[in-house]
């Protein structure tokens, strides 16, 4: 099962290494990891996407909680939540047909073209990871110059939140 774990941790040098090291040392899987400071500059928010059965996810959350730098964490995939990932995508547009087709497809997926040259587009798109995967599946490999994905971030719906 795929899980999204959100953490608040001290914005200290080495905190990221402690989290990454824990996953490596205990053989847990990290599919994606994002981290940035919050409105309080002493606190960072991290989102980890991982996979495992219930027992492994329980161990992951307990071991993360044990790290001194981790203030709070929540497995948001267990509750009603919103997940978003940002993708920047550069594609080849050699002819008019490609340009039209990719523009149309990008509109359908609510992407925005943010850079244009004679033979390329840069498309900005956000959504959950599955939507970004679906968009990519509609392109041929030859069309793609590069793909940059931020990894998912997430937040709970409603009033409840992960805060200090």
């Amino acid at each position: 099962m795929r899980h999204i774990i959100s953490l608040l941790l001290e914005n200290e040098a080495g905190a990221l290494a402690r989290v990454a090291g824990l996953f490596a040392a205990r053989g847990y899987n990290i599919e994606a990891l994002t981290v940035a400071p919050t409105e309080d500059p002493t606190v960072s928010r991290m989102t980890i996407v991982t996979r495992g059965d219930e027992r492994i996810i329980e161990q992951i959350t307990k071991q993360l909680n044990k790290l001194i730098d981790v203030i709070k964490l929540l497995d948001i995939s267990g509750a009603d939540h919103i997940e978003r990932e940002l993708m920047l995508l550069k594609v080849r547009t050699h002819n008019g047909y490609d340009r039209e087709e990719i523009k149309r497809l990008s509109d359908i997926f609510r992407g925005r073209i943010i850079d244009v040259t004679a033979c390329s587009y840069v498309i900005e798109m956000t959504g959950d990871s599955a939507k970004l995967d679906a968009f990519l599946a509609n392109l041929t490999p030859g069309q793609i110059i590069e793909v940059v994905r931020s990894g998912p971030t997430g937040i709970l719906r409603g009033e409840r939140g992960l805060h200090l």
């Binding site: 040098a13 080495g14 290494a17 402690r18 090291g21 040392a25 001194i68």
Partner: peptide, 14 residues
Amino acid sequence: TVGITRPCVKHNFL
């Protein structure tokens, strides 16, 4: 030192 000992300490500081 902090990197080498990180997996075998409860916590460490530089």
